[in-house]
């Protein structure tokens, strides 16, 4: 499974459309294979981000706020989108591979991790 998380500092970015940084991780079962890769985008753009997601053959996208059109587009492209996730991206990745990350989750680390991030 190829996972993409939109990030801002060390947390899941508040908005998909304003994201300039993403993390891509490869995961098999509950194990993350290798070191997650960070990609910096030249500018925030939902369309460019969607194109990157397609190009990278992503299966699951983790983000926070996302507009309906982009959500529908990614769903239509058979991608699983877990949205409205708040908290450190590492914790989100761990929760995802553990199988318990749901849309609308505020992760434990959000209250400290977000501040520090």
């Amino acid at each position: 499974m190829r996972i993409l998380i939109t990030i801002q500092n060390k947390s899941v970015a508040p908005r998909f459309d304003l994201t300039t940084e993403v993390v891509i991780a490869l995961c098999e079962g509950q194990t993350i294979i290798g070191k997650p890769r960070t990609i910096l985008m030249t500018r925030p753009s939902s369309e460019e981000l969607c194109a990157l997601i397609i190009k990278e053959n992503i299966n699951t996208v983790v983000c926070n706020g996302i507009e309906e059109s982009h959500l529908q587009y990614l769903t239509w492209k058979r991608m699983k989108v877990i949205h409205s996730v708040v908290g450190p991206y590492r914790e989100a990745l761990k929760a995802l591979t553990g199988g318990f990350l749901r849309s609308g989750t505020i992760l434990e680390g959000a209250k400290q991790g977000v501040k520090n991030g």
Partner: peptide
């Protein structure tokens, strides 16, 4: 879509999702 009890203590920009 977040309740006050869950959002309390979280940095505002992650809850407001404003530009």
């Amino acid at each position: 879509g977040f309740t006050t009890s869950e959002a309390r203590g979280v940095r505002a920009d992650f809850i407001l999702r404003c530009n």
